[in-house]
Design a binder for these strands. Structure first.
Length: 424
RNA sequence: GGAGAAAUGGCAGAGUGGUCGAAUGCGGCGGUCUUGAAAACCGUUGUUCGCGUAAGCGAACCGGGGGUUCGAAUCCCUCUUUCUCCGCCA
């Protein structure tokens, strides 16, 4: 959520920058400012009214103490009138505030200056590419066929137990999941991220805090009886650790990492893009989150990109890093880098990580602030997050790229984690 | 799941209808003293909104929401959470 200060003070600039995200903010920004003017004037009237009430209440006490009950009763009826008015004002105030908030929720984050123009995935800019695409032998298989050939992932069994998009990992397939999770977490903790195991369901406030609500309601699994949401990413519970928190500036940056399963309904997606591990309703992911000083958040973003790149390199996967264009980036992000790995048998680039700086957009919504030593006023912190990494597509690429007629060879770094060298 | 108790500022903890944004202690910050430090002493110490260049002024906040009253941290209703006892359980 953008701050009112930014909207009021840089109205034209805001509208101009949002155009890059193909969002026409002219009308909505105008409405928000108009409501804000109304809000202020109502607040003023309410405060004045309340102030008068407070004064009278004190007088009444004094008058009774002095035994002047006639005057006291007169004051009482005056107070009753004021109270009636206050009630109206505060009702009006909360209506205006609710309406304003609802509008603010609809305005996306401002894209950073370095965000490229563009409308979709084809306009994203490749900033770096690494690793070699492996030549595959004749008869090389896509990962879903490898999965059944070696009996390591059973998609049909998942359908029986739950539904499509809930695979069952078996034997070395299951062990590989555990190996990757541990490997990623170890990489992250070595880089100074504190490991967290958060709840896998969150309440409504948390879903609002990171912006899943109200706009992405249908994408989360919802537990109606308790009004909980299954988390679509660890970002939600982890970032919400800091909801309504004021930190000391000296504590920044805070760096956290968490493994969680992620649950996404992804309604309406089907076809060959969702085959095998390409898109699932439940998948494993290790996430990194940073809370940083506004002056340093872009430095942190770069650090995170380099960190994730290091992990992908260790896995020896061909990868590229994209800077997302205005049309392809998320509602909440100011600048996003996507990581893709090449899945050789599918001949496709698969997104395995998305690293973003949200600047103060999430922080404003959940009141995450920090205080500089000696400063009286708290200011909004910046939040960043990224996958490091999402498992299924990494597994898809690992299986396809490393297959040989004799079996699938594990990358060197994973061997100690897997306890085996080859899936055969 | 049943019965009872509780929720107050960074922490501990007083406060049962007015003068309470809230005693006191600890912690934090500033100062006096000291070669330096400690101790001691003095002062200071939250958040949000509105008005104001500022100093400042006004309003709200004692778990959340609602109510009673001229006036609520204090009384009532409700929700949530925590603790104790019983039951169940990995």
């Amino acid at each position: 959520m953008l701050t009112l200060k930014v909207i009021r003070e840089n109205k034209d600039e805001v509208i101009k920058r949002l155009a890059k995200k193909h969002f026409d903010a002219t009308v909505i920004i105008g409405k928000i400012i108009e409501l804000d003017d109304r809000r202020k004037s109502i607040q003023y009237q309410l405060d004045t009214n309340l102030s008068e009430q407070n004064t009278i209440a004190k007088q009444v006490g004094k008058l009774f103490a002095e035994g002047k009950s006639v005057e006291a009763n007169a004051a009482k009826s005056k107070a009753a009138e004021l109270k009636e008015k206050s009630k109206e004002f505060s009702q009006e105030l909360s209506d205006v505030e609710a309406e304003q908030k609802q509008l603010l929720f609809q305005v996306p984050n401002l894209p950073h200056d370095s965000v490229p123009e563009g409308t979709g995935a084809s306009d994203n800019v490749v900033v770096r590419q690494g690793g070699d695409i492996p030549p595959l032998f004749d008869g090389a298989l896509p990962h879903w066929d490898l999965a059944s050939k070696y009996d390591i992932i059973d998609f049909e069994l998942g359908v029986k137990i739950t539904g499509s998009g809930f695979p069952v990992y078996k034997g070395k397939g299951a062990r590989l999941q555990r190996a990757l999770i541990n490997f990623f977490l170890d990489c992250n903790t070595a880089a100074g991220y504190q490991e967290i195991e958060p709840p896998h369901m969150v309440n409504e406030d948390s879903a609002y805090g990171t912006g899943q609500l109200p706009d992405k309601d249908g994408q989360m699994y919802h537990i109606g009886v308790d009004n909980f949401y299954m988390i679509p990413t660890a970002e939600v519970p982890v970032t919400n650790i800091f909801r309504d928190v004021i930190l000391h500036a000296s504590k920044l940056p805070l760096k956290l990492t968490a493994y969680t399963p992620c649950f996404r309904r992804e309604a309406g997606s089907y076809g060959k893009d969702v085959r095998g591990l390409n898109r699932l309703h439940q998948f494993d992911k290790v996430e990194i989150v940073q809370v940083q000083h506004p002056d340093l958040s872009y430095q942190s973003l770069n650090d995170m990109v380099l960190h994730v790149e290091g992990i992908v390199k260790k896995l020896n996967l061909p990868y590229r890093i994209l800077r997302l264009c205005g049309g392809d980036m998320s509602f909440t992000s100011a600048l996003t880098y996507d990581f893709e790995v090449y899945s050789a048998a599918q001949h496709k680039w698969l997104e395995v990580s998305s690293v973003s700086n949200f600047e103060s957009f999430q922080a404003n919504r959940m009141m995450l602030r920090f205080k500089e030593e000696g400063d009286k006023k708290a200011q909004l912190a910046h939040t960043l997050n990224g996958s490091s990494l999402a498992l299924p597509r990494i597994v898809a690429a690992l299986l396809e790229n490393n297959q040989t007629p004799e079996g699938i060879k594990m990358p060197e770094v994973l061997k100690p984690y897997c306890g085996f060298d080859v899936i055969d």
